[in-house]
């Protein structure tokens, strides 16, 4: 147990996800030994992020204005919306440079065991966005786990009457792996989603 400010810092760092007491202590002592300018920059970044960053009023991605960078970009395709669970999923999809439409961040997945139902997610806001008829395709890109799958099945049921093209990201074999190591569920889905080879 340390005294005063050092212990306060360790306690605060220990509240961060994935940081245990030992890691918190190591980071605290690293900060004590670091250049004051570096620590100042870190403190400034922490306060700035809380002051400046908010959720986009359209897609609920993180933004520094009322709307995020993607929603403000006039070159983006207005007819396609990709539905994801978290803002970090937007970053992952943007890295692929394959998708030119816009996003909708649900804020999680349906998880009855954790008390998270459809009303706790931004499903109603998605339905409102689809109301004006501009969007013609909804791509559901929830996580490829059972909660993500169940959320996708709930959304597809909700979107049935909108007359849209509703698609789900394909599941299958990771690039760079060996087929013999694939598990049955992944391999089964890869078979389900097999595609024609153009010759």
């Amino acid at each position: 147990m340390y005294e005063g400010a050092v212990q306060d810092l360790i306690d605060e760092l220990g509240r961060l996800p994935g940081v245990g007491p030992k890691s918190a202590q190591r980071i605290a002592f690293h900060l004590l030994q670091a250049d004051p300018a570096d620590v100042e920059r870190l403190a400034h970044a922490l306060t700035e992020v809380k002051l400046k960053v908010r959720f986009c009023e359209v897609c609920f991605n993180v933004a520094e204005a009322d709307r995020c960078r993607v929603c403000l970009d006039p070159r983006r395709d207005l007819h396609a919306i990709c539905v994801v669970e978290e803002p970090k999923d937007v970053v992952a999809i943007e890295r692929t440079r394959e998708f030119r439409g816009r996003y909708h961040v649900l804020g999680g997945a349906i998880s009855p065991i954790d008390g998270i139902g459809p009303d706790d997610l931004r499903v109603r806001e998605l339905l409102t966005r689809l109301g004006d008829g501009t969007v013609t395709e909804v791509i559901i890109a929830t996580d490829p786990n059972l909660e993500g799958e169940a959320t996708a099945s709930y959304l597809s049921r909700m979107l049935r009457d909108f007359g849209l093209r509703v698609t789900r990201l394909a599941s299958g074999l990771p690039v760079g792996g060996d087929l013999e190591y694939a598990d049955e569920v992944t391999l089964g889905r890869a078979f389900e989603g097999r595609r024609l080879i153009d010759v």
Partner: peptide, 18 residues
């Protein structure tokens, strides 16, 4: 090892999953 992928079949049907 998977004996039966029951969870995968259940997640595709929302009422069954809840």
């Amino acid at each position: 090892e998977t004996l039966d992928p029951w969870g995968d079949a259940i997640a595709r049907d929302y009422p069954s999953w809840t």
